[in-house]
């Protein structure tokens, strides 16, 4: 699909954010995914055009990073962390359950274009293992049952909230956020959960605190 003038305009805005325009290439490719649902040949050519580089150079970059897909991702991207900690603590079972539920394997879209399943690497949420993501928003501490339930609810069009983030939108919306992060959702939900406060809670419980001045120390 041809890249619209509006999207090109946004690409120019991204390029203007940096001292050297090429720095905008990663956000621009996120923007392409938000507009196209994948990194298309047209998207690559538009990036190349805006940055005055070759399409080969853009393709080289787009194929290096795993978040960029060369097939339509569909409505929701579903990630399951299968790195050692999450995987062995139950992520493997979560992935198997979702793979069975969706009928697809790693890095594949469902036939109805609703979901894309991916075995993802460490999501920097090991304290919340096993971790799943929907459109890259956190779904912490999942089980095979809860993970399948999330997918079922999404499939039914029900509202699903991230455990540490906003109500789930869709893959394209998240990709837009990655290009233009001021999406107005910073105030949604309270992402600071009990696990992030675990140490603070213990400290309060046991009356521990850090000295705020040298004298107290």
């Amino acid at each position: 699909m041809a890249i619209s003038e509006a999207t090109r305009e946004q690409m120019q805005q991204l390029a203007a954010r940096y001292p050297q325009p090429r720095s905008a290439l990663l956000p621009m490719l996120h923007l392409v995914q938000s507009a196209e649902g994948e990194v298309t040949t047209d998207g690559i050519e538009a990036c190349a055009d805006v940055l005055s580089i070759t399409p080969a150079e853009v393709k080289a970059v787009s194929t290096f990073y795993t978040m960029y897909k060369r097939k339509p991702v569909g409505k929701h991207h579903i990630g399951v962390c299968i790195n050692t900690l999450c995987g062995l603590l139950g992520g493997d079972a979560v992935y198997d359950a979702l793979s069975e539920r969706l009928g697809v394997g790693h890095d594949q879209p469902t036939a109805d274009g609703e979901f894309w399943l991916e075995r993802i690497e460490c999501q920097a949420a090991c304290t919340h293992a096993p971790v799943m993501t929907v459109d890259w928003e956190f779904m912490d501490d999942v089980t095979p049952t809860s993970a399948v339930d999330i997918v079922d609810r999404l499939a039914r069009g029900e509202q699903v909230a991230s455990t540490r983030g906003p109500v789930i939108r869709d893959f394209r919306a998240t990709e837009h956020t990655l290009a233009f992060p001021l999406d107005g959702l910073a105030d949604e939900g309270n992402p600071v959960d009990a696990k992030m406060l675990a140490g603070l809670a213990v400290a309060k419980e046991r009356g521990m605190s850090a000295p705020t001045s040298t004298q107290e120390g």
């Binding site: 990663l26 978040m67 990630g79 999501q123 992060p181 959702l185 992402p191």
Partner: peptide, 17 residues
């Protein structure tokens, strides 16, 4: 910021703004 964590990106961008 790694791209896989939009919640961190939006909160940092919000703070910058």
């Amino acid at each position: 910021i790694r791209g896989e964590v939009p919640e961190a990106i939006r909160r940092v961008a919000n703070a910058i703004e």
